[in-house]
Simulated scan of single mutants.
Amino acid sequence: MAAPLSASLFMRLRRDYRRATQCDLLCVDAEGRRQHAARGDRSGPPWKACAASLRRTLDEALRWGEPCIQVGPEDRLIWGVPIMHNAQVLGGLVAVGPRLTTAPARSPAIRKACSALLDLAIRHHVTNAAHLTLRREHTERERRRAVALHSLKDGGYDSIRAIYLREEPGLLAAIKSGERPAAREIINRVLVGIYHLGRHRLELVKSFVLELVVMMCRTAVEAGGEPAELLGANYESLSAVAAIQDEEPLCHWLTDMLERLMDGIRDNRKYPNTVLLKNGLRYMETHLHEEIGRDDAAKAACLSPSHFSRLLKEQTGQTFTETLNRLRVNKARELLARSDRPILAVALDCGFCDQSWFTKVFRKATGLTPGEYRERHPFALPPASP
């Protein structure tokens, strides 16, 4: 069997990898047999007798889509990348690291050396980067599915409807604010829950998926997406879902639909940030008497907390706390001038926890205590009835 790489190319790769990581590099064929071994090279373990170990290293890399650290002969750490032509594995590059007793497998240096090997193989076009990427994405989906299933069991959901009602608000808020990673996580939890509770009832699962897509499309339009394009995608979904006969394609279809919706919002955003910010300010004005925080206002604005703070500073020149205090003081001025309610009652109505704190904030904003402000703006009682 011919070697998977030419001797000259392998020696160049080996030299570059040694220089970058101080780790040796082996070339092996598809069965794990070493290729291009230099004559008289007696350093390291007896690799000729370790073909099975080297082959297993390549199998794990192919399975997970990236180098996986194994313990080889003489307790040396080894990791590899398959040499591929399209989907065919021709052999592999296997790195030989230090002994396990001198370098933990999870050490930053070893992880960096694993990444360097994958980058080296991709850069020199000796592996199928697209295939490995697909394997990594599949692994990540399975990991998220396992986490979501564990969360589902902890949540005690007993019906698909319960999952839908619980997760829908967060999903729609993530879509509106353009938080793609958060939306993906929620979609994954919903899908896992639907499949777990609706197994063997594919038509029921489809009905909930379609209901979810309708809500997602409407939210995307509200967030600035092009209505004709998004509603057209919604119409296409009806026939597409009807043709799906398995859960796995349905999962891929829904995640693709989410990406299309998020792209539509990004590409044609007609919902300016100032409008979203006003929604947050409106929430603050109507909940002044409550104990509210930045995260509450940001959620009402469909923005991330950090983005909300940045927009607030840009538009008003104030932080969230400064803005909240300003709104509360404005409300207090109105109540002091237009009612005869006790000052403590005014403080509580405006969200201040006690009168002393209210007085301190009010004086800083107006230069007057609440009592002094009321004296200068006396409340006029309505005339007595004849």
Score class of each variant (00 low, 15 high):
Thr21Glu: 03
Ser309Thr: 13
Leu281Tyr: 00
Leu210His: 05
Ala183Asn: 06
Tyr373Gln: 02
Thr274Pro: 09
His377Val: 01
Glu290Ile: 06
Lys206Gln: 08
Gly97Phe: 04
Ala129Ser: 15
Arg338Cys: 11
Arg341Cys: 07
Ser306Val: 14
Val96Met: 01
Val71Gln: 00
Ala105Gln: 05
Pro378His: 03
Pro249Trp: 02
Leu324Asn: 04
Pro104Glu: 03
Phe379Ala: 01
Ser151Lys: 15
Ser304Pro: 14
Ala332Asn: 02
Met262Trp: 06
Lys176Tyr: 10
Arg141Gly: 08
Arg199His: 15
Thr219Asn: 10
Ser339Trp: 07
Glu291Thr: 14
Ser6Gln: 11
Gly367Lys: 06
Thr21Ser: 03
Leu134Asn: 13
Arg106Glu: 14
Cys353Ala: 13
Arg56Asp: 08
Lys206His: 09
Val361Phe: 04
Trp47Lys: 07
Met1Val: 14
Ala146Cys: 13
Thr286His: 06
Ala7Asp: 13
Trp64Gln: 11
Ala103Val: 09
Ile244Trp: 00
Leu212Gln: 05
Leu368Ala: 10
Tyr164Ser: 10
Tyr283His: 09
Leu381Trp: 04
Arg310Leu: 14
Met262Leu: 03
Arg111Val: 05
Thr255Cys: 08
Thr102Leu: 03
Arg143Asn: 14
Leu58Thr: 13
Leu134Trp: 12
Arg326Tyr: 09
Gly351Ala: 07
Arg141Cys: 02
Val192Cys: 12
Arg310Phe: 14
Leu381Phe: 02
Ala52Cys: 02
Ser207His: 05
Ala146Lys: 12
His124Tyr: 11
Leu250Arg: 03
Lys364Gln: 12
Lys270Pro: 13
Ala243His: 14
Leu277Val: 05
Ala61Ser: 12
His125Cys: 15
Leu93Gly: 01
Thr133Arg: 14
Ala297Thr: 08
His124Asp: 12
Pro82Asp: 12
Arg333Met: 11
Gly155Trp: 12
Thr286Asn: 12
Thr316Met: 06
Leu261Met: 00
Ala2Asp: 15
Arg14Trp: 07
Ala174Phe: 01
Arg14Tyr: 06
Ala220Asp: 09
Ala220Glu: 05
Arg266Lys: 13
Leu62Asp: 08
Ile122Tyr: 06
Thr366Cys: 06
Asp340Ile: 07
Arg338Val: 09
